[in-house]
Computed example of a mutant assay.
Amino acid sequence: MQSGERIVINGRDYRLGSILSTSAGSYGQVWAATDPTGRAVALKFINTDAMSQADTSLHGHWHAHLEREIVFLAGLNAAQSRHVVTLLDHGRVNDQPVLVLERLQANLGQWLAQQRRNGAPPPDLACILDWAEQILDGLEVIHRAGFVYRDLKFSNILVGEQGALLKLADFGSLKRQDGDSTRSCMGTPATMAPEQALPARQGADGCEYVVDYRADYYALGLLLFTLLTEQSTTTAQRRLGQLLALHGQEGARQHRDQLGGLTGDERELLRRATEFWTVPARPEQEHGGAALLLTDLLDR
C-alpha cells in the first residue's frame, strides 16, 4: 500500500494518506485516509510485514485479532463509544479484515509531546483526574462487554477536542473475561501488569497466564504515575523488565517477590504532585472512580 492508493470497502472509495501507527510486533497497521465525502478517517489493516515474518501456521492470529476488534466495536452504541473509538465501517480487502475508524487529533503521547514543544505547561491535577475518569469510563465499557483490555498505554489513547476528550483504541489484545487462563503473553512490556508477563504456572504444553480486569487498572496506575510525576515509569516496573531480561518469563516468576511497590522517593514525588488536593472523606463524590484510584495510588 502507498499514499494516494484507492481502497474499496463495501463499495465505498477511500484514499490513503500516511501511516499513522505501526510497529514490528503489532498485529495492525493504521493509515490516515479520507472517505467518499472527504471526511478524515483511519483505516486499520493487518500488519502484513510482521505477519510475513512469522510461521505460516500463526497467520490466523493476525486475522483473529482484527476480527475480535471488529466484533467488540460493532457491538457498541453511540453512548458506549463516548470514550472508545468509533467503528464507522468494516469489510475485507484481499481477503483480509479492514476497519474504518474515526480519526482524532493524535494519541495522548504525541499530543503531550506537541504541547511541550509549544511551550504549554504540563496538565494540572484537575485535568489528569478528568482524563482518568474518561479512561475509566472506556475501561468499564470493555469490562461490561466481558473483555480485559490488556494494552492500556499512551499510544492507545486518542485525543480529541484539543485535549478535552479521550478515547481508547486498538483492541487487538482483548481477552475474554471468563476466568480462564491463556497461553499468550499479550501487552506492552513497559506498561503491562506482572501477571501478564509472569506465568502463573508452566506445564508440558507451555506457560499459562491468569489475567483479569485488575491488569487494566494496574496499567492506569502506571499512566497516572507518569502524568503526575513526569517520571517514565516506576522502579518496580523497571525491575520487572530486568528480571525478564535476566531470567526469561519462567525464571522471572521465581523472583516475583523482588518487584516490590512504590519506593519512598516515588511516594514523595506523588505527594508533592498532589499536595494541594484535599482527599475528600468519600473520594467517589469528587471525580468518581478516578479519585478512588488516585487515593489508592497515594496509599501504596
Rank of each mutant, 00 (worst) to 15 (best):
residue 159 V to K: 00
residue 190 A to D: 14
residue 209 Y to F: 06
residue 200 A to I: 13
residue 212 D to H: 02
residue 188 T to R: 07
residue 205 D to M: 11
residue 167 K to C: 15
residue 222 L to M: 11
residue 221 G to N: 07
residue 155 S to A: 14
residue 172 G to F: 03
residue 166 L to R: 03
residue 219 A to S: 08
residue 154 F to I: 12
residue 173 S to Q: 10
residue 179 G to C: 00
residue 215 A to E: 04
residue 207 C to H: 09
residue 221 G to Q: 15
residue 165 L to R: 02
residue 219 A to M: 06
residue 214 R to T: 14
residue 201 R to W: 15
residue 201 R to H: 07
residue 169 A to H: 05
residue 218 Y to H: 13
residue 156 N to D: 03
residue 203 G to D: 09
residue 198 L to T: 07
residue 208 E to P: 05
residue 166 L to T: 10
residue 163 G to K: 00
residue 213 Y to K: 11
residue 159 V to G: 01
residue 213 Y to Q: 05
residue 220 L to G: 05
residue 188 T to L: 12
residue 211 V to S: 02
residue 202 Q to P: 14
residue 180 D to A: 15
residue 206 G to Q: 04
residue 159 V to Q: 01
residue 209 Y to V: 03
residue 182 T to C: 14
residue 210 V to P: 12
residue 171 F to K: 09
residue 208 E to N: 14
residue 197 A to S: 09
residue 183 R to D: 09
residue 190 A to N: 08
residue 219 A to F: 03
residue 169 A to L: 04
residue 208 E to V: 12
residue 192 M to W: 04
residue 154 F to M: 11
residue 175 K to M: 07
residue 159 V to F: 00
residue 199 P to T: 10
residue 168 L to G: 08
residue 187 G to E: 08
residue 173 S to R: 06
residue 189 P to A: 10
residue 188 T to H: 09
residue 202 Q to H: 10
residue 201 R to V: 05
residue 170 D to H: 06
residue 207 C to G: 09
residue 217 Y to D: 12
residue 154 F to E: 07
residue 182 T to M: 07
residue 224 L to H: 13
residue 210 V to T: 10
residue 215 A to Q: 03
residue 205 D to R: 07
residue 202 Q to K: 12
residue 171 F to A: 05
residue 198 L to Q: 11
residue 201 R to F: 08
residue 194 P to D: 02
residue 195 E to P: 02
residue 169 A to S: 10
residue 172 G to H: 04
residue 213 Y to A: 12
residue 160 G to H: 09
residue 184 S to H: 08
residue 178 D to K: 04
residue 176 R to E: 00
residue 179 G to Q: 01
residue 194 P to H: 02
residue 172 G to K: 00
